[in-house]
């Protein structure tokens, strides 16, 4: 069972948001969906969950269309940044409504989470702060019996303690009951150790699609005196650079071509996910500003 996104194209007010997007979401994996503001992450999640329509292309779950299909939509839950719950509803009512439509909602776990996060389940959704609205939606997302859980900005408005608690609970619930999580976030450092597979959206296209471990083994920082670094990285896929005093760092994505000699003055290290993302998605203009 997997979700296939094929040749998705979407424009809004004449501006392309997603351009010929293809990807597959496998069962029981934690994915990171990364992209800069306006890259189309929320649009993609909304199209997958049939909340909006793509201009062309298809989204299927095991060859069954996802659009307007109860049987596939019932296996998916999207916790979105936009609040779709009634402001008048009490939190416990929202749990019951979710249980009504999805069935088998884990009320005991929801109560435990509400207690851990300090969420009053008698409160009305509309009376909650931004952070507590996020917490309420996160609790539902973690307790709903869906095979695919999409989390769009899951830590919006959460303080550091609540973010930490959420990541712990995510790992625990995933270990107890493996299912697919797709996390769309800007806080890459915080999720870097959680996610197994990453999608990077840039300029409305998918620029990176692979397992985090595989990707990071191909991402390097080459540091040293400018002349030595430039000589060493010549012909390699340099995705960015930094300068500090007399030291230059080149960020390389791809094979290093091991037969070239490594000067003593140059060091090679692996990039972390956030640095790789920043360099992959920096526009040329921003990169130039950064260098100067």
């Amino acid at each position: 069972m997997s979700i296939q996104v094929q040749a998705i194209q979407h424009a809004f007010h004449g501006q392309t948001v997603l351009d010929d997007l293809n990807l597959t979401i496998e069962p029981n994996k934690i994915y990171g969906l990364l992209g800069r503001n306006g890259a189309g992450k929320s649009t993609l999640l909304n199209i997958i969950s049939s909340r909006i329509f793509a201009n062309s292309g298809s989204v299927t779950m095991d060859d069954q269309p996802m659009q307007d299909n109860d049987s596939t939509l019932g296996k998916l839950y999207l916790m979105s940044e936009v609040n779709l719950y009634s402001e008048r509803s009490r939190i416990k009512q929202l749990f019951h409504t979710t249980a009504l439509f999805y069935g088998d909602f884990d009320f005991a776990y929801a109560a435990k989470l509400a207690d851990s996060f300090g969420l009053d389940t008698n409160a009305r959704f509309g009376k909650l702060s931004t952070g507590y609205r996020t917490i309420c939606k996160l609790i539902i997302a973690l307790c709903v019996p869906a095979d695919y859980i999409f989390l769009d900005e899951p830590v919006l408005g959460l303080d550091a303690n609540h973010r930490e608690l959420f990541y712990q609970e995510l790992i625990e619930t995933y270990s107890d009951n493996p299912r697919t999580f797709v996390i769309s976030t800007h806080l890459i450092e915080e999720v870097a150790n959680l996610i197994e597979h990453v999608f990077v959206l840039d300029e409305h296209r998918l620029t990176l699609d692979g397992d985090v471990s595989d990707i990071l083994t191909q991402a390097y920082t080459i540091t040293g005196p400018a002349t030595d670094v430039i000589a060493y990285t010549q012909g390699l896929n340099v995705i960015g650079e930094d300068h500090l005093g007399g030291i230059t760092a080149h960020y390389v994505y791809g094979s290093l071509n091991d037969d070239r000699p490594l000067p003593d003055t140059v060091t090679v290290e692996h990039l972390d996910l956030q640095k790789l993302f920043v360099n992959l998605t920096n526009t040329k203009k921003e990169a130039a500003t950064h260098v100067n």
């Binding site: 969950s49 049939s50 909340r51 307007d68 299909n69 109860d70 939509l73 019932g74 296996k75 998916l76 839950y77 999207l78 979105s80 779709l84 719950y85 009634s86 409504t97 979710t98 009504l100 439509f101 999805y102 869906a146």
Partner: peptide
């Protein structure tokens, strides 16, 4: 719209 929002959030299709 209010019911549509809630129902699509809960995996209910437009046809249903």
């Amino acid at each position: 719209y209010d019911n549509f929002k809630l129902l699509i959030q809960n995996g209910i299709s437009r046809r249903t």
